[in-house]
Write a protein that binds this DNA or RNA. Structure first.
Lengths: 207, 207
DNA sequence: GTCTATATTGTGATAGAC
DNA sequence: GTCTATCACAATATAGAC
């Protein structure tokens, strides 16, 4: 029970950051939200930067677990689940993604850490594509695979922000399944007919 | 000569916004940059919001001209040029794109205007794809074309920001040709062999 | 048109009592 | 651990002299 207030600060911060943007949320608003005094907040965290950094630690732990894709055989269903979990994590910490350049400018020490995440996303995409190729599910040259993975990472990183642009009023009304579908669309042209058909049927739900 | 100072304010603002992020630039810094007093700045613009709005007017004019793609036959070379000009405009006003959600939250009156731009980007993509289909250059179902255009608009909107993540130190060192190439990669799987070959050869320069 | 001076408010952060 | 009170400073914006 010792860290109860500390935890409440972090959770409230995350929620406020996500809905209003990190730079538009003050420490006073965070304290207000959970009915404590600003002084109390600063007893638990010596600066706003410390709150952001600790939330980033959470994010890194969570997405790090996901990106540790093993080098084994991966099914299309596995990939579907993987992408969905990724988008869930991104949505959970969307304050980072929605103003990426701004956040990374204000908290420079996060720059290398985020760049490492991007690199790991790229590697994970590559492991999945390579596994598909080995199974004969996917046909693409090395060049095509590189470009495809690059595009997948871009989409993973920014699809949610892009989608939010159409729902700026109620930002929580975003269906993450659409993001997964959008990534699958990128892969589709290179898929074996069988798998492409399955995708095509699913598209009914998302277009 | 009447509007010299007013213009200098706008140009300096644009440059500072682009390199440091709009929310990280104060009116004092803008005034400092061109060696005028803050009071003078506020003689020309009654608020910072007015500066941002006028820069947005510029942006809208510039990109509006580009997005007025006529319904005529379009060659792959035309598309290449079109995409390059689009990315140039986006780069010129990248302060908007790099923290889109933040900017649109702080200046709510820009939300519908930007959403209209997105819509027009989508329509322009569609006109190009349809022209390609008519010419037999591109083969794709209606569903595939919709998904492709969606993906193209996402890439147009966020490719530059994504690329910047790797060059956070010197943000001007971004080759826009890579962005054009990245969009072409999206279209590639649906292209006729002839055109896809040309693309493949170009990929040497960009990978 | 431009400047200096200043009002006003907001924001991150600290000191010291309870 | 928590609160009240407050500091220090930066940001937008205005007033009035030149």
């Amino acid at each position: 029970m010792k860290r109860k207030t500390r935890d409440r600060i972090l959770h409230a911060s995350l929620e406020l950051f996500n809905s209003r943007g990190e730079s538009n949320v003050t420490t006073l608003q965070i304290a207000d939200e959970i009915d404590i005094s600003p002084g109390n907040l600063y007893y638990h965290f010596k600066s706003k930067s410390d709150i952001v950094t600790e939330l980033y630690d959470w994010f890194e732990d969570q997405i790090g677990d996901l990106l540790a894709v093993p080098e084994v055989e991966i099914s299309v269903d596995d990939q579907w689940l993987f992408l969905h979990l990724l988008f869930e994590t991104i949505a959970h910490f969307r304050f980072l993604y929605q103003d990426l350049v701004n956040v990374l400018s204000r908290y420079e020490h996060l720059q290398p850490r985020f760049q490492r995440i991007i690199k790991r996303k790229y590697d994970a995409s590559h492991r999945i594509c390579d596994s598909f190729r080995k199974q004969g599910i996917l046909t693409a040259s090395n060049q095509e695979t590189d470009a495809l993975c690059h595009q997948i990472v871009l989409t993973l990183t920014y699809w949610l922000s892009f989608e939010t642009l159409s729902h700026l009023n109620d930002r929580d009304a975003v269906d993450l399944g659409r993001g997964v579908y959008q990534v699958m669309v990128l892969v589709a042209p290179y898929l074996r007919d069988e798998e492409r058909m399955v995708l095509e049927r699913m598209s009914q739900d998302y277009l």
